[in-house]
């Protein structure tokens, strides 16, 4: 079995894996980081979105061995210690989640949207950027609000104040 080494949430990890192990399986089963979810098998739902070398990818559509040497960030690595990331706080403040299953992927995608599109996000931009993330609970309404608020909060660096609308 090939060996793979990568950095996950700032921590170096190394393991031997079956070639056919997907990155999401490696994260969930080998590293027991179960915050990254699997909601489909056609890489459409986005519950498995993580960041690889700084960009959002679907960890169900990447082999673990392809992440050799990569920096991987999962939902477990987003908060700093006890302090929630402003985007996480925005989801809480704006009721951007219900069952919570799609939420890790939504938050990882949201951070990627901010990276690419900045802190002032209009409703339509966010909706189009969520092309690859499905939610069955919220009707997306409060997810869109959460992402807009979280993006603004990230600019100001004040999660508690800015995430609340």
């Amino acid at each position: 079995m090939p060996a793979v080494s990568m950095t996950v949430n700032g921590k170096a990890v190394r393991a031997e894996v079956d070639s056919r192990t997907l990155l999401v399986q490696f994260l969930r089963e080998t590293l027991r980081l179960t915050g990254t979810h699997v909601g489909c098998d056609t890489s459409q739902c986005g519950a498995c979105v993580v960041h690889v070398d700084g960009v959002a990818v679907k960890s169900c559509a990447m082999l673990a061995v392809q992440a050799e040497g990569a920096e991987v960030l999962t939902i477990e690595g987003v908060a700093t210690g006890e302090a929630l990331h402003p985007m996480q706080e925005a989801f809480r403040q704006n009721h951007g989640l219900q069952c919570g299953y799609c939420t890790p992927g939504m938050i990882m995608t949201a951070l990627d949207i901010v990276r690419r599109k900045g802190h002032e996000l209009d409703d339509q931009t966010i909706r189009e950027e969520l092309e690859g993330n499905l939610c069955r609970c919220t009707g997306y309404h409060n997810i869109v609000k959460s992402i807009a608020a979280g993006a603004r909060a990230m600019a100001s660096g004040d999660p508690a104040l800015k995430a609340a609308e």
Binding site: T34, V38, I75, L84, Q88, R92, H95, L97, G100, Y101
Partner: peptide, 19 residues
């Protein structure tokens, strides 16, 4: 009231059956 259950879901600490 903001939801008590949210913390675990937004930090990836939820515990679903497959977890």
């Amino acid at each position: 009231v903001r939801r008590k259950e949210d913390f675990r879901f937004i930090t990836g600490a939820g515990r679903y059956t497959a977890d």
